[in-house]
């Protein structure tokens, strides 16, 4: 689909549960930023949880029902004219993106699996396999980071931003949005909004500890500190992510790091859409910095970026 500079995109949007509960700052900054860029994100009607973690068991199709049910919603939106021939399903959360895209790949590759799933959900229409799961980073890349740069009204003035990929945007390779070993998409994004991407920090795709945060908090505190200090030593003033779980582990777990280490200097962690919104001149109320655990205001004031 060719998009000229002024073309409007109306795209089915899958929020996921976390964006409706603990990551409202992610959703509001993304929806409003997209609006500025001519993208209308249309929330799927009656979407259900993506399933959170993609099941790798070959004989457990039950775990793939949830994503497929959401794909059916996207096909319905097209049939009902809610969107016009737009089968891309836009995601923000790295984990939703990964889980949805893995299931989509599986049922597209295996007609038998798709048939089993469709047979099970006999109250739904069959999933026809038309949907493409996409991440907002990919959409921005497709629209062109040069075009994005032109829309920036409040450049980030060289703010040193560490692009944190985590695991789920890059792995497995089959669903990754960029080269798993040497990605550049978030760096290019940071440059486009006037930031200075931190280069050569090896922790950018290191695991944050994920769900260990529930039962083994200490592991995550250690990992988070390692990632943050790695970013800092490469010159970072802040970190961005697109994963609410990474955000929780890197941002909120700094509470424990601070408790353990009185010398520790907090590091703001943003959803990438918060910096995008800042660069596009969004209202403060849509960026919701107050939801971030580490207050980013002092940094923004220091860099003359406060609004």
């Amino acid at each position: 689909m060719a998009e000229t500079e002024d073309s409007k995109i109306k795209i089915p949007y899958f929020p996921g549960c976390t964006l409706k509960t603990t990551a409202k700052n992610f959703e509001s900054s993304a929806v409003k930023s997209a609006e500025k860029l001519g993208v209308e994100m249309v929330e799927l009607p009656k979407w259900n949880c993506c399933g959170t973690v993609s099941s790798l068991a070959s004989d457990d199709l039950m775990k793939h029902l949830a994503p497929v049910r959401d794909f059916i919603r996207v096909e319905e939106m097209n049939e009902e004219g809610v969107v016009d021939n737009e089968y891309r399903m836009l995601t923000l959360c790295s984990m939703c993106f990964n889980t949805l895209k893995q299931t989509n790949a599986r049922v597209k590759a295996s007609p038998e699996d798709l048939e089993s799933v469709n047979n099970f959900m006999y109250l739904e229409k069959d999933y026809q396999g038309k949907v493409e799961v996409t991440h907002l980073f990919e959409l921005l890349d497709e629209m062109g980071f040069d075009a994005l740069q032109d829309k920036v009204t409040h450049s980030l003035k060289g703010l040193k931003v560490a692009p944190y990929y985590g695991c789920l945007l890059l792995r497995p390779k089959s669903v990754g949005i960029d080269n798993a070993e040497n990605p550049s998409i978030i760096e290019r994004f940071i440059t486009a909004i006037g930031g200075n991407p931190v280069e050569n920090w090896e922790a950018r795709s290191r695991c944050c500890g994920s769900y260990h945060t529930v039962e083994n908090k200490a592991i995550v505190v250690k990992l988070a500190k390692g990632i943050i200090e790695n970013a800092r030593s490469a010159g970072a003033e802040c970190i961005i992510t697109s994963c609410p779980l990474c955000a929780f582990n890197l941002d909120s777990r700094q509470e424990e790091i601070i408790r353990e280490d009185s010398e520790y200097r907090p590091m703001p962690v943003f959803y990438f859409t918060q910096l995008l919104g800042l660069a596009l001149g969004l209202d403060k109320k849509d960026l919701r910095f107050e939801d971030n655990f580490i207050d980013p205001e002092p940094l923004l004031v220091q860099k003359g970026l406060n609004i």
């Binding site: 949880c49 949830a66 109250l123």
Partner: peptide
């Protein structure tokens, strides 16, 4: 609750 796989068996 958070183990729901959206199978819809309950509704049926």
């Amino acid at each position: 609750v958070f183990r729901c796989v959206s199978c819809n068996t309950c509704t049926k």
